[in-house]
Design a protein around this nucleic acid. Structure first.
Length: 273
DNA sequence: CGGACAACCTGGTTGC
DNA sequence: TGCAACCAGGTTGTCC
């Protein structure tokens, strides 16, 4: 569910609501949430009493800046962060695994059907090393030269490179397929075989599709919701993702689906070489 | 290093 | 209608 655009949509919606508020209460009821590091009790004890200074995004991670420490949230496949302006309107269901009561009555709930998401606290100055993710594709540092360098140093397939969070941060299965379609590149190509012109097209395709995803408030296949519970509107605009068997929007050739690295992979066999 | 695979979870869809 | 099989936006660990 949540790739870079969805996480960014959540960040933009949540930041004006939570920044400046103090965490008054933290309830983490599903211990799996903190499996990576810490315990529910330790995380809760660290965040209570702290003011949220900023809300940032790094790849698919949301980072709540609490001063000396940062609270990090990853939404896995089905994680949601839902906002309740008034705490008495909070109606947790069986999939609501944590909630945070904030000053001025706000409440932030974490809901996650499949429980692949996680939540942990790290010292603020160690966030970067703890997350260990690569280039932000929407940052100025993500140049054609930078992407070219990654491609040259990679013997695998280009789609695998796009999905490798330690090289490029935030691209998931939907946006990888969509970016490769826009660039006219077959997902099975060896990354090191891309020519300079293809690398420029890929960089453009990646940025364009991520920006479009954000502009349309995310891709909701089934679970994605923004903090107010609204689904995104980008899914109907996907050009290849889960459109196998249907005509390519450009050339009418049927879109194909293959499995690459255990992930469903969609492309137009005519447009993508 | 790359690739194949299983595992972690739950629910929706498909096909017999 | 019932039920099994398969699929899913992600990540990690193991093995070869």
């Amino acid at each position: 569910m949540p790739e870079l655009p969805e996480v960014e949509v959540i960040r933009r919606a949540l930041a004006p609501l939570v920044v400046g508020r103090t965490i008054l209460e933290a309830r983490i009821v599903e211990p799996r949430l903190t499996r990576r590091r810490g315990t529910p009790e330790a995380v809760a004890a660290t965040v209570v009493g702290r003011r949220i200074r900023a809300l940032r995004r790094r790849g698919k991670f949301l980072v709540f800046d609490l001063g000396a420490d940062s609270l990090v949230v990853h939404l896995g496949m089905t994680g949601q962060l839902l906002w309740c302006e008034a705490q008495h309107g909070f109606r947790p269901d069986g999939h609501t695994h944590a909630h945070f009561g904030l000053s001025r009555g706000g409440l932030l709930a974490y809901r996650d059907v499949r429980k692949f998401g996680e939540l942990f606290v790290v010292p603020a100055r160690t966030v970067d090393s703890a997350l260990d993710v690569g280039l932000e594709p929407l940052d100025p540092v993500f140049t054609a030269a930078a992407l070219g360098g990654l491609c040259r140093g990679c013997r695998g397939r280009i789609k695998a490179l796009l999905l490798d969070q330690r090289r490029i941060a935030g691209i998931g299965n939907i946006y990888a397929d969509e970016a490769l379609f826009r660039a006219g590149i077959r997902p099975t190509r060896r990354a090191s075989s891309l020519r300079a012109e293809e690398i420029r097209a890929l960089r453009r395709g990646i940025r364009a599709v991520l920006e479009a995803g954000i502009r349309h408030r995310g891709s909701s296949i089934s679970d994605f919701r923004d903090p107010s519970g609204e689904p995104g509107r980008f899914a109907p605009l996907h050009r290849v993702y889960r459109r196998h068997g249907r005509p390519c929007v450009v050339c009418k050739t049927p879109v194909r689906r293959i499995v690459l690295g255990q992930r469903g992979t969609h492309f137009c066999p005519a447009c993508q070489r």
